[in-house]
Simulated scan of single mutants.
Amino acid sequence: MARNTMEAWIPEQYDSEVIQRINQISVVEAVANRLPMTSDTRHAPRSAGMGVEVIDKGSAYGEDTSLNDDVTLTAKKFGKVVRIAEEDINDALPNTLAVKMRDWGISYAKILDNSCLAVTAAAGVGVPFTSLYNLLNTTNNDLGYTGGDNITVAGSAGPTYDDFSNAIGDVEAGDYYDPATMLAIAHPTFRKSLRGIKDQQGDPIFVKGLAGTPDTIFGVPIRWSLGARTSPVATSAPAGRPIMAFVSTDLMLLGVRSGPESVFIDGRDGTSALTDESLLKMRSRRGWAYGHPAGAAILVG
């Protein structure tokens, strides 16, 4: 029978089932600002804001003294390899590869969201990026931000109306609030607590979207993410506390180095020929940074 032997990494097409599944599950892949990366690192400018003043006729303009810097995106690799026995693929190679690629895409979507949003530790071994959760827990004197200011932790009985209101209020009170780009990213376990919460007028703060419209909280669209649970390291199956993050999509920076892509290594070549097993390798290389801690808030459920 004919064999499918691929000599190089093959990118997934944008209309492929793998890409569609990733965009359905990963909020970061679907809505973040995508910055092409031609090397392992990329610097994106970050502004600390800019002042403005009234200038009398004939007076000199005052100079702005706000500190400006940049954020660095470093590409990290998310990947996996699967061995497939020749006996299992002789008669159904395309189907086998498609199923494995789709399964990998689902796990990749969850670990990417977890890495970008909810990992509690600083970047290091097992932690590819500074997550939003870690960013909001860290003091940055240059930006005038105190660690923990924009994090609200719900009590043991679950989040209350005040918890949701205080969390979104942390963003609304900041200089980076923009209702046109504001988004809530939450783990689906928040659905249960949201259904019964109403404001002082008796109106529910959570409105389920109909006919293709998104779910909303306080009028802000919600995207649901299975990766939005805290975890000490990046994982596709986080088991910590669920989070709801209020973010600006303008400040979500996703560096795109390559992928998702795959390579099929035929089991009839090289040392794999000794076991009649082919290898399917899948990977994606991404960088991540959130533009400014004052432009986001997190409610820990």
Results as ranks from 00 to 15, higher is better:
Ile217Pro: 01
Thr189Ile: 03
Val54Tyr: 15
Gly79Asp: 13
Trp224Ala: 02
Glu172Leu: 01
Ala92His: 06
Val125Ala: 14
Asp64Asn: 14
Glu86Leu: 08
Leu143Arg: 15
Arg191Leu: 15
Asn150Lys: 08
Arg195His: 02
Gly144Met: 13
Ala228Thr: 04
Val256Trp: 10
Met282Gly: 02
Met50Arg: 12
Ile19Thr: 07
Ile265Asp: 10
Ala121Lys: 15
Gly255Gln: 09
Ala211Asp: 08
Arg83Val: 03
Glu29Ile: 00
Arg286Met: 04
Thr38Asp: 09
Val82Tyr: 10
Ala186Ile: 06
Asn140Gly: 01
Arg229Gly: 00
Gln20Asn: 14
Asn23Asp: 12
Gly295Val: 07
Glu87Asn: 12
Asn150Phe: 03
Arg286Lys: 15
Leu280Arg: 14
Gln20Ser: 13
Asn23Phe: 10
Ser66Thr: 14
Trp288Gly: 02
Thr230Ala: 08
Pro179Glu: 08
Val82Pro: 01
Lys110Ser: 01
Leu117Gly: 03
Ala60Ile: 03
Asn141Gln: 12
Ala273Phe: 09
Lys76Asp: 08
Ala234Thr: 11
Gly148Phe: 08
Asp15Phe: 12
Ala75Trp: 00
Asp64Ser: 09
Arg34Phe: 02
Asp88Leu: 14
Gly58Gln: 09
Ser248Trp: 06
Asp276Glu: 09
Ser284His: 11
Ser156Arg: 07
Tyr61Thr: 05
Val220Trp: 09
Thr189Arg: 12
Asp162Leu: 13
Thr65Leu: 14
Ala123Lys: 15
Lys77Ile: 07
Met1Lys: 13
Glu63Trp: 07
Asn4Glu: 03
Ile298Gly: 03
Gly287Phe: 00
Ala85Asn: 11
Glu29Val: 02
Phe78Leu: 10
Leu136Val: 09
Thr120Tyr: 10
Phe78Met: 06
Val171Leu: 14
Ser248Gly: 10
Ser231Ala: 14
Met252Pro: 01
Gly126Asn: 14
Leu136Lys: 05
Ile205Met: 06
Pro232Gly: 09
Ser156Ile: 11
Lys198Gln: 08
Thr130Leu: 04
Pro159Gly: 03
Leu210His: 02
Pro45Gly: 05
Ser272Ala: 12
Phe218Tyr: 15
Gly259Met: 06
Ala121Arg: 14
Lys198Arg: 13
Ala123Thr: 14
Asn114Trp: 00
Leu210Cys: 00
Thr181Pro: 00
Glu172Asn: 02
Glu63Ala: 13
Ser165Phe: 08
Met37Trp: 03
Pro204Ala: 04
Asp215Ser: 05
Ala239Trp: 00
Arg83Trp: 04
Thr271Asp: 15
Leu143Asp: 09
Trp288Cys: 03
Gly209Trp: 15
Ser165Ala: 14
Ser278Leu: 05
Glu7Ser: 12
Gln13Phe: 10
Val153Ile: 13
Ala154Cys: 05
Val153His: 00
Thr160Arg: 13
Val119Tyr: 13
Pro159Leu: 07
Asp250Cys: 00
Ser262Pro: 01
Ala154Gly: 04
Ser66Asp: 02
Glu17Phe: 03
Gly202Ile: 01
Gln200Met: 11
Met182His: 01
Asp266Leu: 01
Tyr145Pro: 03
Asp64Arg: 08
Thr130Pro: 00
Arg42Gln: 10
Ala237Leu: 08
Met101Lys: 15
Phe264Met: 08
Pro232Leu: 07
Ala32Gly: 07
